[in-house]
């Protein structure tokens, strides 16, 4: 574990280098410990692929130099993290209409993989995906576990508006756009499931550690 400053109001805890499930478990273990026993001055905790960030208020970290106080408190709280068993995330099935108007890039992505659209859907729906982190947009899940066979480069020109619920592939990642936004991913389908709702608690449906699978509701073009 390494701790480094991220500006003067945050610290970044680095828990590994690889995008893998072992590192992900350490990130979640650290997140759980710092949620249960917060460091003085904590404002926000932000888990990512290999790091956990602690945003803090340097005027509220107690006595002494703020960063040193935070770093000391983190070191004391994060010993022997590898022994922790973070709570299992929930399972979420995302029903998707593949292709058609909601999935305009399905055929192009299938062709890129040398598959028929139906075969591409079969590969995409057979995956067991782990939510590594949520970022980029409210409720946007970064999912690990996609079969590299169906990886596809992003569009040369991003779309100015990708509708909420669009399911896409960008490089070796797959994900769902929670809100209407610009985006460069290849869009293969659409879900009605709401991934972000400010009236819900928590507002983001998916959290780091959750497992996601996609269920084909047929193809929109059929």
């Amino acid at each position: 574990m390494q701790i480094e400053p991220l500006g003067d109001c945050a610290a970044l805890i680095r828990l590994g280098d690889a995008l893998d499930e072992a590192t992900h478990r350490l990130v979640r273990a650290a997140w759980e410990r710092l949620t249960a026993d917060p460091v003085a001055g904590t404002v926000d905790l932000v888990p990512a692929f290999t790091t956990l960030a602690l945003h803090y208020d340097p005027a509220r970290t107690g006595s002494g130099a703020p960063y040193e106080a935070v770093r000391g408190a983190l070191e004391r709280r994060l010993e022997r993290l590898e022994l922790d068993r973070p709570a299992a995330g929930k399972r979420v099935e995302i029903p998707v209409v593949y292709g058609g108007p909601g999935g305009p890039d399905l055929e192009a992505v299938a062709a890129h993989a040398g598959l028929s659209p139906a075969e591409l859907v079969r590969v995409h729906t057979s995956g067991d995906y782990l939510v590594h982190m949520v970022g980029f947009a409210p409720g946007f899940p970064y999912l690990g576990g996609m079969d590299p066979l169906i990886a596809c480069p992003r569009r040369d020109t991003p779309r100015t508006r990708v509708p909420a619920g669009s399911v896409g592939i960008g490089g070796r990642q797959t994900g769902v756009y929670p809100l209407d936004s610009p985006g460069g991913w290849q869009i293969i389908g659409r879900t009605e499931l709401r991934l972000f709702d400010t009236a819900a608690e928590p507002p983001a449906l998916l959290r780091p550690g959750d497992r996601v699978s996609f269920l084909a509701l047929g193809t929109g073009g059929a």
């Binding site: 997140w31 404002v43 926000d44 905790l45 932000v46 888990p47 945003h55 949520v134 970022g135 980029f136 947009a137 409210p138 409720g139 946007f140 929670p178 972000f196 928590p202 507002p203 983001a204 959290r207 780091p208």
Partner: peptide, 11 residues
């Protein structure tokens, strides 16, 4: 709105 960054919510 700090406190929601883990859900991708900007401050």
């Amino acid at each position: 709105r700090p406190g929601h960054q883990h859900d991708g919510v900007s401050v």
